[in-house]
Write a protein that binds this DNA or RNA. Structure first.
Length: 202
DNA sequence: CACCGGATTGGCT
DNA sequence: GCCAATCCGGTGT
């Protein structure tokens, strides 16, 4: 049993709260006839305009950031370090450029497809325990940038009614945003306590 | 149009 | 633990 997350879920203006709500939800893709999914176990919130770590800091509108100003429920996928595709969920109403980076998932469906994409022969945590490699495992690239998440088409998120106790959610500072001055110390990273599929970052 | 640096990863010392 | 890989977006000339 599962429920597709809909527009009203993504339109929530509180991106920090939504980041926690995404923990335990299932990120799913159906690309090139391959169905894959994983439970979201680690997220980070990015809240423009005041967040210096956000690409849309100061409501900067460029070709790249434009999708973040769309209404919640779209994919923002960009290339990082020229190598890795990082998948974000656009949230909030139109013109509120909030986004949530998915940092790690626990693989659930189509694990053999994920291993092929990752060029792995044995399953282990390195299949999906980071934002770049989980995108690779799910087949996500900039080809899906701007894709709608509100239908079960190419990429979407499901509620499978996994409930988390408050003490199962670990809150800490974000990773890799040292350049963001005072925003670097904002504790908008969330992960599921003791989950072995979380990223290795401090 | 040139330059700089990055929301990362994996391989090697 | 260090560092190269690799490409593009953002900025300034």
């Amino acid at each position: 049993m599962s429920e597709l997350l809909n527009r009203s879920f993504y339109s929530n203006e509180d991106v920090v709260n939504l980041s926690q709500q995404l923990l335990g939800k299932y990120l799913c893709t159906n690309l090139n006839g391959k169905y894959t999914s994983g439970k979201i176990v680690e997220t980070e919130a990015y809240r423009a305009p005041e967040d210096k770590a956000s690409h849309a800091y100061g409501n900067r509108r460029t070709n790249r950031t434009e999708i973040m100003f769309n209404e919640g429920g779209h994919a923002y996928i960009y290339l990082c370090y020229g190598i890795h595709h990082l998948f974000n969920v656009v949230t909030g109403p139109t013109d509120m450029a909030h986004a949530i980076l998915i940092r790690a998932i626990e693989p659930t469906d189509g694990i053999e497809h994920m291993m092929t994409r990752r060029n792995m022969t044995k399953i282990n945590y390195r299949l999906t325990n980071g934002p770049g490699i989980l995108s690779q495992a799910l087949g996500l690239s900039r080809d899906q940038n701007g894709e709608s998440l509100t239908d079960r088409n190419l990429v979407w998120i499901e509620n499978r009614y996994v409930s988390l106790e408050k003490d199962e959610v670990i809150r800490s500072t974000r990773i890799g945003v040292d350049y963001a001055e005072e925003c670097a110390s904002w504790d908008w990273r969330f992960r599921i306590k003791n989950n072995p599929w979380c990223s290795p970052a401090k």
